[in-house]
Every structure is written in C-alpha cells, then in structure tokens.
C-alpha cells in the first residue's frame, strides 16, 4: 500500500492489542493456528512422509531379493571366517562363538537398515536445481528427508533384516539375548543408528552446495563408514586406544557397533543403555550441524536458469 505512510496513524485500540501470550503471526502476517494443532499437523506430515519413504522402497521387490541374496552369501562367508578366528576356544574381542555369529547375521541385516552406502539424492537435486522445490515446501528439507529415510529404514527392516537373521537362527549356533530389556533397547538403538547415519549422509550431501559433485565426499563417508563403524569387523578387534578415539570422537560406532553390541549383549544392561544415550547425543549433534550448514548453504544457492 504505497500511500500508507501518508495516512494518519490511528490511535491503538486497546481491545485489539496483541495478546503477548498468543503466537506471533507468520512471515506473511497471517495469524498462526494454535500451537497444539501446529504440532499435530507437523506430526501428521512427518508420518505421511515416513509412509511415503516406506512405500517408495517397497516398490523395488526384485532388487530387494537380489540384495538379500548378496547379504546372505556375505553373511555365510563372514560367519565362516569368524568361526575360524574363534576356533580353539578363543574369545576374540570378548565375544563368544555364538555372539560372533549373531554379530555377523544381525549385522548383515542391519547394513541396509542404517544404510552407510553412497546416498546422493539431495546432492543430485542440488546439482540439477530441483532442490529449490524442496526449499519452497512448508517443511524443512532436513525434516522431510529424515522422515523419508526412517520410512526407508522401516521397509529395510521387513525386507532386508529379517531374512538374514532367520538364516542365522536356522543354520547356525547363534546367541539369543536373554535379557528382555535387550529387545526394547535394540529397537531404540536401531532407530537412533539410522538417524546418526542419515545425519552424516545429509551433511555429506550438503557439501554439494559448494562442490556440486559430491563423489569425493561420498567416497570418504563410505570408506569411514565401512572401516570405523564396525560393519566390516567388530570394532573391539581394534587396539584399545583407537577404540577410545573412535567411541569418543566420531559418530561411526553409533551406526553399527552399538546396536550390534546391544543385540549380542556384549556388555551389561547399564552400559548398553549408556551407549544408546551416546547415540542420542550424536543424533542431536549431527542434526544441529546439518541445520547450521544448511542455513549457510541455502544462502549460497544460485539456481541455474532454464
């Protein structure tokens, strides 16, 4: 309203004075719905996005069968090697034979749940410019991608986790957890592990705002994920000082080693619960980092026309 400045200011109406306890209007000056409804809407949106992620990956059933086959072949090889290492009554890394077998089979199932492979979805959208569409939506891309990734992980639990574990239980002398709390803790730990892995992947993808091509950072992430997370060998085979460094300084043990140690009850209940808390800390740290980097990245964004 160009003439607004010329209009005399009307005296403030005491009855329409904004209530300081009410929510401030949104950026366009529209009143916001009450906080409770907003939270309910956000939760409904999150669930819808998670469901979409689940259905999207559930579509590729043939690829799932192919992947399962590979997981099972690798699981059989690793189980053989682990049994060779634990021959003659040795307990490498403090694991019994049965625990090592469980580590291998639960781990093969978990590989595609936590997913440390190369994920470049966001980076590809940054390069093509499609990311603008993500930024225009009313949901922060960090939230929407996290929801979709949880959906993907949920699908992977059904499609990729159960079968290797069943093979392990059916054909091997495998460790079965005897503390009831382990089962609950394991579920929590797997959800947190997925979020840690997602946070790391998202952060790597954000580098596309600066580099455009993220093959290098993704390769670095995959290498670190393979070596330092315990997906290749239990981290407890490492020298102790390296373990301390990794446990305290990096998110990698939270992705793989912690849920698996919880599953095979490598430590007592209290210590297991503490390691799950450590996962939670890493989730918070990584999401805060993602949010800070994303804020800077969006300011850099130049969308290529066309």
């Amino acid at each position: 309203m160009p003439f607004a400045a010329a209009c005399p200011k009307s005296a403030p109406d005491p009855h329409s004075a904004p209530d300081p306890s009410a929510d401030p209007p949104d950026r366009r000056g529209r009143p916001r719905p009450p906080a409770r409804r907003r939270a309910a809407d956000a939760a409904a949106g999150f669930v819808a996005l998670t469901g979409a992620g689940f259905r999207r990956y559930a579509t590729y059933r043939q690829a799932m069968v192919a992947g399962l086959f590979t997981n099972i072949v690798f699981g059989a090889m690793l189980a053989s090697i682990m049994l060779g290492v634990a021959a003659d009554g040795r307990t490498p890394g403090g694991y019994s034979r049965e625990q090592l077998v469980a580590f291998v089979w639960v781990g093969q199932g978990l590989l595609n749940v936590v997913y440390t492979w190369g994920w470049r979805e966001l980076a590809d959208r940054v390069r093509s410019g499609d990311v603008t569409a993500d930024l225009l939506r009313p949901v922060d891309p960090l939230t929407s991608y996290a929801a979709a990734d949880l959906g993907r992980a949920g699908q992977a639990v059904l499609g990729r986790w159960i079968a290797p574990v069943v093979v392990g239980v059916a054909f091997y002398d495998i460790y079965v957890p005897h503390r009831p709390s382990t089962y609950v803790l394991f579920v929590v730990s797997v959800v947190l592990a997925t979020l840690v892995s997602f946070g790391g992947r998202y952060l790597v993808n954000l580098s596309a705002f600066w580099l455009l091509d993220v093959r290098g950072p993704v390769a670095l992430w995959m290498l670190a994920g393979a070596l330092l997370s315990g997906s290749f060998l239990p981290m407890r085979f490492l020298p102790e000082w390296v373990q301390w460094l990794l446990w305290c300084g990096t998110p990698f043990p939270s992705i793989f080693q912690i849920p698996l140690d919880v599953a095979v009850e490598r430590t007592d209940g209290a210590l297991s619960a503490t390691t799950v808390l450590l996962q939670l800390v890493w989730v918070i740290v990584l999401f805060l980092a993602c949010r800070a980097v994303q804020r800077r990245a969006v300011r850099r964004l130049v969308v290529q026309g066309g």
């Binding site: 290098g216 290749f232 060998l233």
Partner: peptide, 24 residues
Amino acid sequence: LDVLVTSFVSGIEVVAILLLFRVT
C-alpha cells in the same frame, strides 16, 4: 578426494586381515 579415498579402499582388506590376526 575421490581418487585419494578410493585408493584406500583396497587397503581395507589388508587392514581387516591384520586386525583378525590381532585376536588370533
């Protein structure tokens, strides 16, 4: 970065063997 990092990939197998022989 890619060349550098992927060049370490083939080292993983050797590292794995060395780690295994720490415990056996």
